[in-house]
Nucleic acid binder design. Structure first.
Lengths: 340, 340
DNA sequence: AGCATTTCTGGAAACGTTTACGACGGAGCC
DNA sequence: GGCTCCGTCGTAAACGTTTCCAGAAATGCT
């Protein structure tokens, strides 16, 4: 393997000069720089990551922690894939690499993170699926590890986060439904104790109250975020008496299940039960009637997340705290409630 | 940050001795070993990954390359999540870490891999979604990078791979259907030019021929592996004249789309069109009638993949070449064809 | 007791890179 | 011509760890 040493010997230069030439440092003549770059390309030289990281004290790598085992994390839709895509594009321009660190849900997430921190293999971490009380955050703050949370948490402190506007979405969705005359609106929240579940339910509760609609804990369903969860949501709504006239889903990926179960009962989404999915998702373009939801530019979000993660190392003060807004897109799955 | 140096000073020992104690080497007395381990735990010492990697010439990390942007890779179901989970369990026992390397489908995969190889950040790579002609394989062989391919390829050579038994599944599925009296069996293959598409179609073709069934290129559909793809498959089948009596899916995740489209046409899976999904998937337990498919123990597969990947570094000779068998599990979605 | 052997420990080199510093040459200036 | 200064390059230390080697202490053997 050609290291910088072999390269220097081949060029009859010192390794110091070669290094400076490769890294665009000042103290090297244009002629030699050109010569070095040519030789490096020819010999296929790639700097050894460990050596560089050891010397520089940083790895130019950022880790995104993902939960494996939980279907809500990466499965169900290409949400994260697209996010990762955009993040990587941003990183790439900054000479940084992205690695995904899968954390087994069976393992202790704290221990997993502590291990990553100790290894110093990444300069910063991006964590997802934040909990209402998330010990990971306190740990990372304590360890002095730069990190960005995708999602808020009740853990106090000035750590950086970016989150979707769950309460804004819930509020707007309820408002749209109320304006059409809906009085009984059921809500689906994740079964898992992630923070967004509570933000989502709080936003819903506040909006229900503000519009003076029917408030009832039984209208809030906790289900797994999956097609099957959607099916169970529809099942539950069908069993309620009086039956809600609208259903608000925490994830649009549940909608196919809802539609299927309604169809089996001879009901039609929109006409018999208004349905609002969370995110407007082109993958679900086949749904009839079209599913109402909220537009989200995943590329823009991914870029923002990427930039925030990059900024972590450079400016630890003034952490990002960003609620990402989403715009309502009406569709035929939302109509006035059926006449009683 | 407490390095081994600080630890040694704190213990009034040489760093050599401390290192040996930590790494379970022979030349250290039980008493000091105990003392060192206690101090390491107390001071929260974690070996620096770069330092160790630099010295040892290996990183104890294996990279799994994933394609982002393509919905078939990680989305659709939790297939990879579960695989990763089991792989990680295997790695963990061997003191190895797993990182996921997302490769943007927009980028050049060769360049991406070359970069990973050059960085020497991982000891071995696991690549997925192998193509029929996959230049990545030739490149990795040439670079001398240990790797394992999840999926076969037409690229010649003795590189290690593990793949599902696509032709076996296609063969058995056709046999089951033929035994029930089906004569016109439609097949769904991925639209993308992955190797498995061809293995799958070849297996199907051979079985069709062997059983003397209706052979016709129009019976083979190339569609995206998604719920919507399943919908399109059903759509296509409905439009065929004469209509096939059975449908063989390359992924069970397409089944909900198939079921939905059939339902809209007033048809019932099993009764009007037999459907076989690829893998038996508990996530799809809600489908009625139950979907026939092939049992696959993802944990066992993940363990096998993990072990093969671990063995890559130790025994480069005699590469793994493994076709993973799957057993047919009948269900109500497969019944004799309707009387003409 | 004397020697050989074992057990434990410290010293130091090495992995590949970056970077502070010093050295050397030539050019410019008085 | 001697001085400074700038441009260019080589030298060497340092990052944190592992591992080889030698040395010291302790033990076993005759």
């Amino acid at each position: 393997m050609t290291g910088i040493k072999a390269l220097a010997r081949h060029l009859d230069l010192s390794i110091g000069t070669v290094s400076r030439a490769l890294n665009d440092k000042a103290d090297v003549s244009p002629a030699t720089r050109k010569r070095v770059l040519a030789a490096a390309r020819e010999l296929g030289y790639r700097p050894n990551h460990s050596g560089r990281a050891l010397r520089q004290g940083r790895t130019s790598t950022i880790g995104l922690v993902l939960e494996t085992g939980s279907p809500a994390s990466l499965a169900g839709d290409a949400f994260f894939m697209q996010l990762i895509d955009a993040m990587q594009e941003t990183f790439s321009a900054a000479g940084t690499d992205l690695v995904l660190l899968p954390c087994r849900s069976a393992d202790d997430p704290i221990e997993f993170l502590r291990r990553q921190v100790g290894r110093r293999m990444v300069d910063a971490l991006v964590i997802t699926a934040t909990r209402r009380q998330d010990p990971r955050i306190a740990m990372l703050v304590e360890e002095g590890m730069p990190f960005l949370a995708l999602g808020r948490s009740g853990t106090p402190g000035d750590w950086p986060w970016i989150d979707l506007d769950f309460e804004g979405v819930a509020d707007r969705a309820v408002a749209e439904l109320a304006a059409l005359g809906h009085r009984r609106i059921a809500l689906v929240a994740p079964r898992k104790e992630v923070n967004l579940a509570h933000v989502w339910m709080d936003g819903y509760r506040a909006a229900i109250r503000r519009h003076g609609l029917e408030e009832h804990e039984g209208l809030m369903l906790r289900l797994s975020v999956s097609e099957n969860g959607g099916r169970q949501a529809a099942e539950a709504v069908l069993g309620m008496d009086p039956r809600p006239t609208a259903l608000l889903l925490v994830s649009e990926m549940m909608a196919p299940g809802v539609y299927a179960r309604l169809g089996e009962a001879g009901l039609e989404p929109g006409r018999d039960l208004s349905v609002i999915g969370f995110r407007r998702n082109p993958q679900l373009g086949f749904l009839r009637p079209e599913l109402a939801g909220f537009a989200l530019d995943l590329r823009a979000l991914g870029t923002a997340v990427g930039e925030a993660a990059l900024g972590l190392a450079v400016s630890p003060a003034d952490p990002v705290r960003l609620v990402w807004p989403m715009d309502y897109v009406p569709a035929a799955s939302v109509r006035p409630p059926p006449a009683e």
